[in-house]
Amino acid sequence: MTTPEEGRTRRPTALEIATQWAQLPPEHLRVALEHLELELQREHARESARERHQAALERDRAASASALDAARIREEHVTERARIAAREGKEQRAHQLYLGGLVAGFVLAAGMLVGSVVVGLADRQWLAGLLAGPSLIALPVVFVLRRSDRLTARPRVLPIPSAPEQLPGDRPA
Rank of each mutant, 00 (worst) to 15 (best):
T2P: 10
P4K: 09
P4Y: 13
E5Q: 11
G7K: 02
R8P: 02
R10I: 05
R11A: 08
P12Y: 00
P12D: 09
A14W: 05
T19R: 13
T19D: 09
Q20K: 13
W21I: 13
A22H: 08
A22I: 08
L24G: 01
P25H: 03
L29K: 06
R30G: 08
R30W: 09
V31Q: 11
L33C: 03
E34K: 06
E34Y: 02
Q41P: 01
E47M: 11
S48I: 09
S48W: 00
S48L: 12
E51M: 10
R52Y: 01
Q54G: 00
Q54Y: 01
A55T: 03
A55D: 02
A55R: 12
A56Y: 01
A56Q: 01
L57E: 14
L57T: 05
L57F: 01
E58M: 10
R61L: 03
A62Q: 14
A62D: 12
A62C: 03
A63T: 07
S64W: 04
A65C: 04
A67H: 03
A67W: 00
A67D: 08
A67E: 14
R72T: 09
I73Y: 08
R74F: 04
H77M: 13
V78H: 10
V78P: 03
T79Y: 06
T79V: 02
E80S: 15
A82V: 07
I84P: 01
I84T: 09
I84K: 07
A85Q: 07
A86E: 14
A86F: 03
E88V: 13
G89Q: 15
E91M: 11
E91A: 15
R93F: 04
A94M: 10
L102G: 13
A104E: 14
A104C: 07
G105S: 06
L108Q: 05
L108Y: 03
A109W: 04
A110M: 14
V114F: 11
S116D: 02
V119F: 01
V119T: 12
G120T: 01
G120E: 00
L121P: 00
A122P: 01
R124T: 03
G129E: 04
L130R: 01
G133W: 00
A138M: 12
A138Y: 06
V141H: 07
F143T: 01
V144M: 13
L145F: 04
R146A: 12
D149T: 05
R150D: 06
R150K: 13
R150P: 09
A153N: 13
R154H: 08
P155H: 06
R156N: 07
I160S: 04
I160K: 11
S162V: 09
E165R: 11
E165I: 04
D170A: 15
A173R: 15
